[in-house]
């Protein structure tokens, strides 16, 4: 059976390869920092499942030290000039889209087919991890199509992955770090403290005030936690269920559905949701790491107001 562990081996090999390419590239003045960073990252994939968690924690702290104190660099070498790329684009035309579209096509196919596929009664992939494994298969299929079609040098995929991953830099690891922070927040009971404070200090005497506190609270707490899924249980147990539902007789389905979506408005506005907001800014090589958040704030605020109006209009009507 294929499990996530196999995908992690693949990730480990990719990260180790990127570390290796970096180590050999004299054009990058920080090449040893880059090599150490991606090498440590590779270790968390290859050995993370059986290393003691404290050791993995030390590896992670070492990565942070390399990236924040030592800083990462980038190669100055371009594999192809702009003119070469233009010529290649003209030569291949729309066929270039084929490998790119293979990724989502195979990912989707995988999620549908592999969920129930079995060999001799045993499932081919772990049914709980179908989505992630399908994404990995989609990436491999896209790579295979591109290699057959374009026939680049064998090391080209690794060099190109290195170029992109170094452009993203430390931001590539931030989502995992934030997940770790969220876990520590949960252990320390940060959510309970926040909802106790909210109950004590906010005016919640009217049905409208309860709705506004719940939707705005979902957005704010999501901004702190970086994740609406972490905010939802805390805010719903603290404000939604006791006030909107029990005290003022609101409909729990409307409240929960629109409440979660209010949290998503918060996700659009916070650097804590790194994989949506900070990673894309790095991936698109934007000088301002908050540029994506800034583009999203007007929509997020208007939509939060819309959510509050929708909830107030319908939650007490059922």
């Amino acid at each position: 059976m294929i499990t996530l562990e196999h995908v992690y081996w693949l990730m480990g090999v990719l990260a180790a390869g990127v570390a290796w390419v970096n180590a050999r590239d004299a054009s990058n003045p920080k090449r040893w920092n880059n090599a150490a960073f991606w090498g440590l990252y590779a270790a968390t994939f290859l050995a993370g499942s059986w290393l003691p968690h404290a050791v993995t924690g030390c590896l992670v702290i070492a990565m942070v030290a390399v990236a924040s104190i030592g800083k990462l660099g980038q190669t100055t070498r371009e594999s192809q000039t702009a003119a070469q790329r233009e010529a290649s684009a003209a030569r291949w035309g729309n066929r270039l889209f084929l490998p790119a579209l293979t990724i989502p096509a195979v990912t989707l196919l995988g999620t549908f087919v592999l969920k129930t596929a079995t060999v001799g009664g045993a499932p081919i992939v772990d049914p709980k991890q179908v989505t992630q494994i399908s994404l990995a298969l989609g990436a491999l299929a896209g790579l295979a199509v591109a290699m057959v079609m374009l026939r680049p040098p064998a090391a080209a995929p690794l060099h190109e992955a290195r170029r992109l991953w170094d452009a993203v830099g430390w931001a590539a690891v931030l989502p995992q770090m934030l997940a770790a922070l969220g876990a520590l927040f949960a252990t320390a009971g940060v959510g309970k403290v926040v909802s106790t404070l909210a109950e004590r200090w906010l005016p919640l005497g009217t049905p409208l005030a309860a709705v506004v506190t719940y939707t705005v609270g979902m957005a704010l707490f999501t901004m702190i936690m970086g994740n609406a899924f972490a905010a939802f249980p805390v805010m719903t147990a603290g404000i939604g269920l006791p006030l909107v539902m029990t005290r003022f007789g609101g409909d729990v389905t409307v409240m929960a559905a629109v409440g979660m979506l209010s949290g998503f408005c918060g996700t659009l506005m916070t650097p804590m949701a790194a994989n949506y907001n900070i990673v894309p800014a790095a991936l698109l090589e934007l000088p301002d790491e908050y540029a994506v958040i800034k583009a999203q704030i007007p929509t997020a605020l208007l939509l939060l107001a819309a959510n509050t109006a929708i909830m107030y209009a319908f939650v007490y009507r059922q």
Partner: peptide
């Protein structure tokens, strides 16, 4: 939470295609 990083497996093919224009 290593699963959130799996998306980076697309980098080799995306990089290769960018190289090809």
């Amino acid at each position: 939470s290593r699963y959130v990083a799996i998306v980076w497996l697309v980098l080799p093919v995306i990089g290769l295609l960018e190289r090809a224009g």
